[in-house]
Amino acid sequence: MKPEPWWDEFTIEAEPTDRLLDALHYVKWYKDGTLALRRSCAHGICGSDAMLINGRNALACKVLVKEVAPKVTVEPIRGLPVLKDLIVDMEPFFEGYKAILPFLINADDPPDRERLQSPEDRARFDDTTKCILCAACTTSCPIFWGDEQYIGPAAIVNAHRFIFDSRDQGAEERLEILSDQSGVFRCRTTFNCTEACPRGIKVTKAIQEVKRAVMFRRF
């Protein structure tokens, strides 16, 4: 039996330039040792501390206290089962990610030396290689909240990264998966995902490009 969720309130002192993650650590170390959160690298690249901060998804290690003081509300990201406090079960999220076959597919014999790729072709998918799988986009998406079958923005971003890689031959297969009823056309272009991405990836744009690729099979 899971207990009913509840709110806790803590008052602490912090420097304006401290990060919100520092404030949460302070709470954990000095106020309530049971507070459960996934901690980040503090480098903003591991993607483990995405949470709902004053109603918007962000990484706690990239939000400064001065941006949210004097009072801040912190919740677990939405749409995934809460395990404890700020920790959610990421497994459904990674199921969606795995579904789009996130690896290079190329059935040709390996070349003698290397598969060439021009800087222009490399740049084609550069933006979507920046994803750190923090789930901030997917769990800010109202379609995902309503339907956990929806594959979600993060999975589409990562599909984009391979569909538009000139060395990859798996685009047809991925587009087939994404044209499914839980796929890319569930997107209603609310731009929540783009706003939420801590890496500044143009998520909605990537999704639109994938939609076009599904419709016209051009990539």
Partner: peptide, 19 residues
């Protein structure tokens, strides 16, 4: 390194397409 590139690792490229 070339094998890793071949597995999809997106290393930076030269104009002629090599790493």
């Amino acid at each position: 390194v070339l094998q890793l590139a071949d597995w999809g690792c997106a290393f930076a490229r030269l104009p002629d397409g090599r790493l």
